[in-house]
Design a protein around this nucleic acid. Structure first.
Length: 502
RNA sequence: GGCGACGUAGCUCAGUUGGUAAGAGUGCUCGACUCAUAAUCGAGAGGUCGUGGGUUCAAGUCCCACCGUCGCUACCA
């Protein structure tokens, strides 16, 4: 049995959940669900990032404490993930006591190992980014290039992390199979090749953060506190046996905007602390609207709940897992969501279940027959399973689902070829054809369950099986012949009612 | 300026280490069917794999240049 520890970024609580947050979270969720079915020891973590100047100021503006501010927004993320059937094992918040202990412990180790020193830092600071900028990076003289707001001049005595002394170790780590896709690994490698400068990791200008244990005037800069959440959640600083169990099996899913932090700073911190860097980092692109970043389009105003209202949880999840190719930037469009829903979910899958259920009712008295061992669909199912498993293992969710749907299309063609609705009721041939189709529905319910958390169970029940698809164990459950026959097949309301094209 | 990514059918994209006459879905055209959610099935049209060179028996897949889009980074200031 292998271990699979998957994480999403932890989301900053100045922003409410939108589809840009939901995308990596759904991806991580589907992967976690797949690995659970594979029988892997699986841990799925998400959470919220709650420290920093921006939170402190937002709280002041709202007339509440930073903790209140964090509590409110953090809950909105938990609610959003509940709505989307996110099956995270843990939800970490960086304001938790266990995280404070963990951060202080990890960075103390870094310091004890000689990787932290004191120096003065001064520069243009963007409160929104929580980052310093060089003059050349600014636009319009004094505006942050990301937020296009004026930066502020800050000068403070800080502790620095001696990143520059870890180039060799980082190059070594990045040269192995660690960052995906490969292009992103080269990008990270490029950052290291250009030469690394030591980075400031503490602040004295604010107090909404985790105190530096060896100097009470300082708190850790929010980024360095945030990264450590991945270690905290699996027991660093609190449960060494648990930490041993999960680390370094981490698979981080991130957006390309935080590549530098996850592919350079984070592994460097771990190495400096005498720990192993994460196993893998998977970098996704941006969701775009009209070729522009989500954050610049107003699309962040679209709450997942709005789309769930139109497409259902399954429709929402399926669209992002199937239509977004993990890695490159991806164009978001409502129209393509409608198309995908209608063709794959309503037509290919939903309609297949409907027609099979109807014919079983008419020709087999509603009792689903067993499949045939030598069905021509058996090798197709085996190949689709292999491709799907490969897709899931490479974080290529769209590849995995495309492979799964191929089996459904072949099954529709198989029905067309044998026309069971024209055959004699109760005949052997009609039982064979319908048994094969039901077997495909059983296998598909399992293979699609990481995406279709609800419909997969509906299909399972409609073809008369007990339990649920998520209780099945792969790869055995995907073997042809698992449908026992003799089950009562029921035709319910359409699984995915077609959506009118607007 | 330096480094890097990307550029494959109208659209969205697969193409793992170079090798069967370029793939899928969707869209479009034609035909079939009517069990089914006006669903399904079949056939077809549609690509100089950004452009131009090069390496090789063989390149979408490697090398160089250029064009386009984007990113990281530097300097001048």
């Amino acid at each position: 049995m292998s271990r699979f520890y998957v994480t999403t970024p932890i989301f900053y609580v100045n922003d409410v959940p939108h589809i840009g947050h939901a995308y990596p979270t759904i991806t991580a969720d589907a992967l976690a669900r797949w690995h659970r079915m594979m029988g892997d020891d699986t841990m799925f973590l998400t959470g919220t990032d709650e420290h920093g100047l921006k939170i402190q100021r937002a709280a002041e503006e709202n007339g509440v404490t930073p903790q209140d501010q964090a509590d409110t927004t953090s809950k909105r993320f938990r609610d959003a993930w509940e709505l989307l059937d996110i099956s995270n094992d843990q939800f970490i918040r960086t304001t938790e006591p266990r995280h404070h202990v963990s951060v202080q412990e990890l960075l103390t180790r870094v310091k004890d190992n000689g990787y932290i020193e004191k120096a003065t830092y001064a520069g243009h600071y963007c409160v929104s980014c929580e980052a310093y900028y060089n003059d050349g990076d600014l636009v319009d003289g004094d505006h942050c290039p990301i937020h296009e707001r004026p930066v502020e001049w800050l000068e403070e005595e800080n502790y620095f992390f001696k990143l520059s002394s870890l180039e060799k170790e980082l190059t070594e780590w990045l040269t192995s199979d660690t960052v995906f896709p490969e292009g992103k690994r080269n990008e990270a490698l490029g950052i290291v090749k250009l030469g690394l400068e030591d980075v400031s990791i503490t602040r004295t200008s604010i107090d909404w953060g985790i105190p530096v244990p060896w100097d009470e005037d300082h708190v850790f800069y929010v980024w360095y506190d945030a990264l450590i959440n991945y270690a905290t959640a699996v027991g660093f600083g609190s449960d060494s046996a648990e930490f041993e169990r999960w680390w370094p099996h981490a698979h981080h899913i991130i957006g390309k905007d935080i590549l530098r932090f996850h592919c350079v700073y984070w592994p460097a911190m771990l190495i400096a602390a005498g720990l192993e860097p994460p196993r893998e980092v998977h970098v996704s692109g941006y969701l775009l609207l009209g070729g522009k970043k989500l954050s610049k389009t107003g699309l962040t105003q679209i709450a997942p709940a709005d789309l769930v209202a139109d497409f259902g949880v399954d429709g929402y999840r399926y669209h992002f897992l199937r239509d977004v190719s993990f890695g490159p930037d991806s164009e978001f469009s409502y129209e393509s969501m409608v198309t995908r829903y209608n063709t794959d979910l309503a037509n290919t899958l939903g309609n297949l279940l409907s027609r099979v259920a109807t014919v079983v009712a008419k020709k087999c008295d509603g009792i689903g027959p067993a499949p045939t061992a030598d069905s021509p669909l058996a090798p197709v199912a085996a190949e689709c399973y292999a491709k799907a498993a490969d897709g899931w293992s490479r974080f290529q969710t769209s590849v995995a689902l495309e492979a799964t749907w191929f089996l459904l299309r072949e099954t529709n063609a198989y029905l067309e070829k044998h026309e069971p609705w024209k055959l004699e009721a109760g005949s052997l041939e009609v039982a064979d054809v319908l048994g094969d189709a039901l077997e495909v529905l059983r296998i598909t319910a399992i293979l699609a369950s990481p995406a279709l958390t609800r419909a997969s169970t509906s299909i399972w029940q409609a073809i008369g099986l007990d339990g649920s698809p998520t209780d099945q164990r792969l790869p055995d459950a995907a073997e042809w012949g698992g449908y026992p026959g003799g089950c009562s097949v029921t035709k319910g309301a359409p699984l995915f009612p077609r959506l009118a094209v607007e």
